[in-house]
Nucleic acid binder design. Structure first.
Length: 954
RNA sequence: GCCCGGAUGGCGGAAUUGGUAGACGCGUCAGACUCAAAAUCUGGUAUUGGCAACGAUGUGCAGGUUCGAUUCCUGUUCCGGGCACCA
């Protein structure tokens, strides 16, 4: 009986579907476990072998947990709103809803073949009104809330209104830069004034600010969607532009997002990325009085108040509000010229060039501690949006200040003695201060609090914490997103009533932008006449809370019932790529904290543990074409009948190859080729699927593209060898491999195991189809433990030998450990070893095989289910219990490595054991090998047993 | 420039806490079966010297700690990822 995976996999996939074995209920006596994948954007390109990697890992873990006795939630859905579908609609005139639906069907088909255990009854789609109704609803909650820094949590905005009515802005001063008002003043405000004030507090607010504008995409982008001045999607230029925008006040959550990282199990790299993005820094703000007018102050932010005596100049951002007052008559024209120059430069030019520029204002401020006159400069290296938009420059300690000082010949004060070379700045905190008045001789680190305290006493400054993170731009001038449930009247934003949700996205004729930088919805009269907001929400809106919807996907009363979210709680394992480190992960963490604040859920971190799968790279293949110059005829021939040279030959000097190439040319193109001139060799991507290892399948290559139909080849050793390079897997590089083909050829079980076998999940690695044969062989070997070609079924119910049990129990322990810590590649290896060992023992015992199947089941669900039933089990292997292992079978034959220490009686042994620590001593002394080594003598004492090391006094 | 991670055979990788380096798989070589091929099976396969037993060297490079280092420490080179005027 053969292992016919096609029939087996079809049979079980159908059976599982019919029996709804993956349907999960929100109640169970078992403990819960929530295993989640980052849901995909259903793109038109379909899946390549890189996509399912994380899904396979999560599926293995979910199945493993199920076998371990957990009620496992393992859902899947689609993040269907987004730019690519809309771009596709613009190009092809197909409605995004239609193309998305088609893409979802393709996705589902590809996923189904791999045999995932998703509970599809819980499928969600962020673009469906039944889903985005709740995205809009949460938006309204954000809109109707503010952040109370005293309680350190979000609260309904109605409480703020009440407070304003009672006591005006009295207790709110310092929170926000709003003019203060009394209770009666508040009541006398017009509605517009009141609403404008409240807008300063709402967690989702509409403001007028500088945003990242992408002309090509016709929309605003969030900071994390812009990379080096270009859009993440499409790579189009992005410029700064002032626009009316919706924002999420994520800055209010900066501290909690930071603290929350301590409670979750993310990789250090991931935590660090988020920490850097939030960018918390501790320092002080301090005032420098104007030389001309002691009542006017320039306020700066610094993290190094200890360097106060090293301040040689001040720098303000070109947008700084005090520039007009600081600029003297003499410098006026120079300042104006400089500011005009800064304005003329785009964000990208600035980032690309980063050249030192600046301009003196003509004014001075005074160092508050020694009254020293300090010149005030303007430069674009100081950002208006961070701190106070002004800095005190300490060139001996800060690289940028140092370069600036050098460039403009500003004398540098050295406050760190020999730590400063005069050639570059030294940002140390450990130097002893010099030239620093009352701080002389104090280590910089210790001087920091001293200065801050003094500032506070003098009333010219205070301790201050700053963050790099900015409020997140939340609106897009596009069509394919959630409409905002907002109506504008007289410049006031009114929320829609909850009962009017969902506010459905209307059909449009054209996806062209509306007037004045507005989105396509602004072209719809029935939309604008109702004064509805014409922006839509960004892609991350729907994905910020989707993990909650899976818990209760069909609820039409609420986004997720409290009982469901209480039952499932946090996601226990979240698997996805690192690319969402500072986007999706930060936003969904914020939304979770917000919903927690309003007591809609009982936990404030969405993901307990995060596993980042690495990228599977493509291994591209190249062919090398000879480029010539010659008569028009010959160049024409070169196009029709290209000559390709094997990789091993192309690196030889062109001149060395002249003759053989000439011969090939003449053979292919006729005598006329004698006079052509060889120019160069160019490399061209060739489809990896046409290459076996490195050898090109020439007939397949010729029929691949018409332009190669008449190509001829210069071979080495009778073969055409391709070049290779590891690159991102993408259609344009012809290095994608479709999982469907592999599943058809080797089966889903082989495919799943091979993806895991490739290497650690977290690691990026190139795809290589060749090795899949090894995994396929393993499954057939496993099959042969049960069936023989000629004799048929060969497993027996005879009791297993000790050796067989030893092999089994070792495997159970290894698989349990490895699967639990996501070391899937070593787990697959262990399975291979086990099957080899059982093969050598000619072991066909049901007792052993049955347990082997259970530990294999998460990895290869189809074959293990088939064989499980063949062993006579009526119920699905999904409901089996994960086997326990027995310690006594785990003792490796102890091999001993005596180490003589200074020839003394004490002797150290190395013993390979796989047993529990407590058992070691006993086992060691009982072990035959140990006794042999001790040569009959009984050990006097076991000194210690630690790790694998044992000290014995003989 | 700054921060983080990595470097092990021809290749992907293993070595769980400092204890036989190279598991497992691919590739490759030899053999068995076959008229032959495929499939399958068996054995070899880090480098180097040797017919062999066996010996020497070996985890990017240079040092250090240790009875013992792929693992810990210092310096250095290269590769990958993130951030990039955040004072």
């Amino acid at each position: 009986m053969e292992y016919s995976f096609n029939a087996i996999e079809k049979k079980w996939q159908d059976r599982w579907k019919a029996d709804q074995v993956y349907k999960i209920y929100n109640n169970s006596s078992k403990p819960k476990c929530y295993v989640l994948d980052m849901f995909p954007y259903p793109s038109g390109a379909g899946l390549h072998v890189g996509h399912p990697l994380g899904y396979i890992a999560s599926d293995i873990f979910a199945r493993y947990k199920r076998l371990k006795g957990f009620n496992v939630l393992h859902p899947m859905g689609y993040d269907a709103f987004g730019l690519p579908a809309e771009q596709y609609a613009i190009d092809h005139g197909i409605h995004p809803a239609v193309s998305t639906k088609q893409n979802i069907i393709n996705f589902r088909d590809q996923l189904d073949r791999i045999g995932f255990s998703f509970d599809w009854s819980r499928q969600i789609n962020t673009a469906e009104p039944s889903y985005y109704k709740w995205t809009q609803w949460i938006f309204l909650q954000l809109f109707n809330s503010w952040y109370d820094p005293n309680a350190n949590q979000a609260r309904p905005i109605s409480e703020l209104v009440l407070s304003f009515e009672k006591q005006g802005s009295k207790n709110m001063t310092g929170l926000r830069t709003i003019p203060s008002f009394t209770s009666s003043e508040w009541k006398s405000f017009s509605e517009k004034q009141q609403q404008d004030t409240l807008m300063e507090f709402r967690l989702a607010y509409c403001g007028y600010g500088e945003v990242n504008w992408c002309e090509a995409l016709g929309t605003v982008l969030a900071n994390d969607e812009v990379i080096n001045g270009f859009s993440e999607r499409g790579g189009f230029p992005v410029v700064k532009k002032k626009l009316r925008q919706w924002y999420l006040r994520i800055t209010e959550y900066a501290d909690r997002l930071l603290e929350g990282l301590e409670k979750v199990d993310f990789s250090d790299a991931m935590k660090e990325m988020q920490t850097n993005w939030i960018g918390k820094s501790y320092g002080a703000e301090m005032d420098f009085a104007f030389e001309k007018d002691p009542f006017k102050k320039l306020r700066v932010y610094t993290t190094r108040p200890d360097t106060i005596f090293g301040v040689d100049f001040m720098v303000v951002a070109p947008e700084h509000e005090l520039i007009a007052e600081l600029t003297t008559r003499e410098e006026k024209s120079a300042v104006e010229t400089y500011i005009a120059y800064v304005k003329s430069r785009s964000e990208r030019e600035r980032l690309a060039e980063k050249k030192i520029s600046g301009c003196f204002t003509g004014s001075y401020v005074l160092n508050p501690f020694n009254g020293r006159k300090i010149p005030v400069w303007i430069s674009e290296y100081v950002l208006a949006g961070y701190g106070t938009g002004a800095i005190m420059a300490v060139p001996c300690g800060d690289e940028r200040d140092f370069k600036f000082a050098q460039h403009f010949n500003i004398p540098i004060t050295n406050i760190i003695g020999s730590n400063f070379s005069g050639k570059e700045a030294n940002p140390t905190k450990d130097a002893l201060l010099e030239n620093s008045d009352f701080l002389n001789g104090i280590p910089m680190r210790n001087a920091l609090p001293v200065v801050i305290e003094k500032l506070e006493i003098m009333g010219i400054g205070n301790r201050r914490v700053n963050y790099k993170i900015r409020d997140a731009a939340f609106s897009r001038q596009r069509y394919w997103g959630e409409p905002f449930p907002i109506i504008w009247k007289n410049g006031i934003a009114y929320p829609l009533d909850e009962k009017d949700l969902p506010l459905e996205l209307p059909k449009v004729e054209s996806y062209k932008p509306g007037p004045d930088g507005e989105g396509p919805l602004a072209n719809l009269i029935e939309w604008t006449e109702k004064h509805l907001e014409t922006n839509t929400m960004p892609g991350y809106a729907g994905s910020s809370w989707y993990f909650l919807r899976y818990m209760d996907p069909h609820n039409s009363e609420t986004f997720c019932s409290r009982s469901a979210s209480d039952y499932w709680g946090q996601v226990d394992l979240y698997i996805g790529g690192t690319e969402h480190a500072v986007g999706h992960l930060l936003y969904s963490r914020m939304w979770t904290k917000f919903l927690f604040d309003l007591d809609y859920i009982s936990f404030d971190e969405p993901y307990r543990q995060l596993l980042n799968q690495g990228m599977i790279q493509g291994s591209s293949r190249f062919v090398y074409r000879i480029e010539i110059s010659g008569s028009d005829d010959m160049e024409m021939l070169a196009k029709q009948k290209p000559i390709l040279i094997s990789a091993g030959l192309k690196n030889k000097k062109l001149s060395e190859l002249q003759d053989s190439i000439k011969n090939a040319l003449i053979e292919s193109w006729g005598e006329g080729a004698k006079n052509v001139e060889l120019i160069s060799i160019s490399s061209l991507h060739v489809d990896v699927n046409l290459v076996d290892g490195m050898e090109l399948d020439i007939p397949a290559f010729k029929s691949w593209r018409p332009e190669y139909a008449h190509a001829s080849f210069i071979l080495e050793n009778g073969k055409y060898i391709c070049g290779s390079e590891v690159e991102k897997m993408s259609k344009s590089k012809f290095n994608t491999v479709n999982p469907n083909e592999l599943v058809e050829k080797y089966g889903a079980d082989t495919f799943r195991m091979y993806e895991m076998f490739l290497g650690p999940v977290e690691q990026s690695k190139p795809w290589d189809t060749k090795g899949i044969e090894g995994v396929y062989r393993f499954l057939r070997k496993l099959w042969r433990l049960f069936f023989d070609e000629t004799r048929g079924r060969i497993w027996t119910t005879n009791p297993a030998s000790e050796d067989e049990r030893k092999v089994l129990h070792k495997a159970i322990k290894k698989l349990d450990d490895d699967t639990g810590r996501f070391s899937f590649n070593t787990a697959v290896s262990a399975l291979m070893i086990t099957v080899n060992e059982l093969g050598e023992l000619k072991s066909h015992k049901k007792e052993v095989l049955e347990k082997l199947l259970i530990i294999l089941a998460p990895y290869a669900p189809h074959i293990s289910e088939e064989l499980w039933h063949d062993l006579g089990n009526e119920y699905s292997i999904l409901d089996a219990a994960y086997p326990e292992y027995e310690e006594k079978y785990l003792v490796e034959s102890a091999k001993l490595y005596p180490v003589a220490i200074n020839g003394k009686t004490r002797t150290e042994l190395n013993i390979n054991l796989d047993a529990n620590q407590e058992l070691v001593e006993e086992i060691v002394l009982a072990d035959e090998t140990v006794r042999k080594w001790l040569n009959g003598a009984s050990p006097k004492k076991v000194i210690y047993v630690r790790n694998k090391m044992i000290n014995i006094v003989v």
